[in-house]
Design a binder for these strands. Structure first.
Lengths: 200, 200
DNA sequence: GCGGATATAAGTCACCTGTATTATGTCACG
DNA sequence: CGTGACATAATACAGGTGACTTATATCCGC
């Protein structure tokens, strides 16, 4: 065999290049040629690792989701073990918002993905399931926190779950510089303070 | 002059066609030819009303913003005069979320616009200013409600403003059917209840 | 009525796209 | 020592794109 190469590694490098293109020029400009240029490989080489544009985009999306998940996991290691429910929710939220370069890259990929999923029945199902799983995770965290007495039992589980998820609405405000990262964090902390306070 | 025609009306009809294309096929597919087909006019005719694709998209965006603003104004007429601050905030939020066809069309245009603005310096400024104005409006509403005693004076104005705006984060959850409109409304009402309750 | 601004249609152009094809280089293994 | 799977590169192609030009029809105001 020839210059044996780590396929996975190559594909991830290309995915990173794709992220940069999407971040700097937008999803529609993420063409085969542009990504190849950004990744500093030939068009033919890119096609060797991704047989179609769709395959490339799909991989880059799954990779982004994995990376976000990894960042959350990593963010939890710095906390008390087991971590307090409030801190877990805080890490999940801060890693989903574009508060630092890595998170911003995956956040933009995710935004483009959701927008694309709205009019593509196949993608729609995938995105829908993914988002639903995310919601289920948050819901489970809150349910357990209620069971353990960290959150008042007279709260409505579904409503509190949805309110937590709605905090991702800071994304466009942060991206366009309307609010500062500290303001988003202050609002998140305020909301979590109320959620984990005795009063309803 | 020939078959004198209402330019404004024509452009709005084309903008509506553009909305439909964006809603059904996405922003990148909103090409001159596709919009002309959807609007049932010839390509030459479309170019007669919009000299470039950018001009068409820009007009459609401004029109979407105007329409949203109009819907809010119209939504306020059914309320007590002067309307209670809580109701005003509720109308603003419900008209920004994709809870009915008109709002969904403008919501999707707005999403595509913001995504585009992230990597286009010129659009970025326009979008940024628009969003900031929206935030200022909400902030003013809350400040007045605090001055009038509807909202406890020990609340933090900036934080409460940002938390209200974050409720637009329901958009992707609604669009992908992860939560139902009633759930979003319940969460909004819950948040407003807390904001307008005596306790901090 | 008729000149001329307006409206609509049709065709053309250079460019970019995703994909397919082909050619050439590389090197582990029988 | 090749042979064959893998890697890289270069090119071709059909289709769609925005913008432009040209041609024709329409009908108000003089």
């Amino acid at each position: 065999m020839p210059k044996q190469v780590d396929h996975r590694e190559r594909r991830e490098a290309i995915a990173h290049a794709l992220w940069r293109v999407v971040e700097q020029q937008g999803w529609p400009r993420a063409t085969m040629r542009e990504v190849a240029r950004e990744a500093e490989v030939s068009l033919g080489q890119l096609q060797h690792y991704f047989s179609s544009r769709t395959a490339m985009l799909t991989f880059a999306m799954e990779f982004a989701a994995d990376q976000t998940s990894d960042r959350v996991t990593r963010g939890l290691t710095g906390l008390d073990q087991p971590p307090r429910p409030r801190d877990v929710l805080r890490v999940v939220l801060t890693e989903m918002l574009p508060l630092h370069p890595d998170a911003r890259a995956t956040s933009r990929m995710n935004a483009a993905y959701v927008l694309e999923a709205l009019h593509d029945p196949e993608l729609r199902d995938v995105a829908s399931v993914g988002l639903r799983q995310g919601r289920d995770t948050v819901e489970r965290l809150i349910r357990e926190a209620m069971a353990d007495g960290h959150i008042s039992a007279d709260r409505n589980l579904a409503i509190e779950t949805d309110l937590i998820l709605s905090l991702t609405g800071f994304t466009p405000l942060l991206e366009l510089g309307v609010i500062k990262p500290e303001a988003a964090l202050a609002a998140i902390d305020q909301h979590l303070d109320r959620l984990f306070s005795p009063a309803s």
